[in-house]
Amino acid sequence: MKVSDMTQDDINAALAAFDTSIAEQTTPESSWTALQDLSRKLIGAKLFTIMTVDMKNEVARREYTSDAENYPVSGTKPIRYDRWFDIVHKQRQSFVANTISEIATVFPDYETIKSLGCGSVINIPVVIAGQLLGTVNCLDVEHHYDSQKIVLSQHLAIPAKLAFLAASR
């Protein structure tokens, strides 16, 4: 089934599968894997990563990746104050870019993104108790995150919060 052909029953089944997976998780990695599986079912993602933020120290850290070779879980990188920051951190809205040229305006690693066959991105902020904990990052081919997938991505908000909490316990 294509992501664009999802029915409400398909969405409910994907959410139920996530619920079962997260209930059985025993490691942070399994929480992220459950969220990755749900994201791929609902909106698609060739590349899936989780970033956490530490605003006190103004750094972000990749906590999980579906491609450890090209996007390893590693140290921290400084927070950049730009258009992406305004949308995700200040407005607490998802950032969407559907071409590699749009991506290049905010991500310095756009050439690596392009080399992986990705040309669109949706970064979903995860906010709990008024604090931005991080983002769920899904990347796919150019023009992938159309209006229908953006609407479907709203189904990831509560599961993402749950995955962040489960991974931190």
Rank of each mutant, 00 (worst) to 15 (best):
H155Y: 15
L156K: 07
I150H: 08
P159T: 02
P159A: 04
A157K: 12
C138S: 15
P159C: 04
D146R: 11
G117D: 05
C118K: 02
A129D: 15
H144W: 15
I150P: 08
C138T: 11
A104E: 12
V121G: 00
L156W: 07
L116P: 04
T105E: 15
A160M: 00
T112D: 06
C138Y: 07
S120D: 00
D109I: 11
I122F: 06
C118P: 02
S147K: 14
T112A: 11
V151D: 12
I124E: 01
L156Y: 05
Q154R: 14
G117H: 04
V126N: 03
Y145A: 09
S120I: 03
A157L: 14
E111I: 02
Q131I: 05
N123T: 03
V151T: 14
K149A: 12
I113R: 00
H155M: 09
A129Y: 08
A104L: 05
D146F: 11
P108S: 14
Q148V: 15
S120W: 05
P159S: 06
S153P: 10
L132A: 07
E111Y: 01
I128Q: 04
P108T: 13
L139S: 12
A104N: 07
T112M: 12
I158L: 13
C138L: 12
K114P: 03
N137E: 13
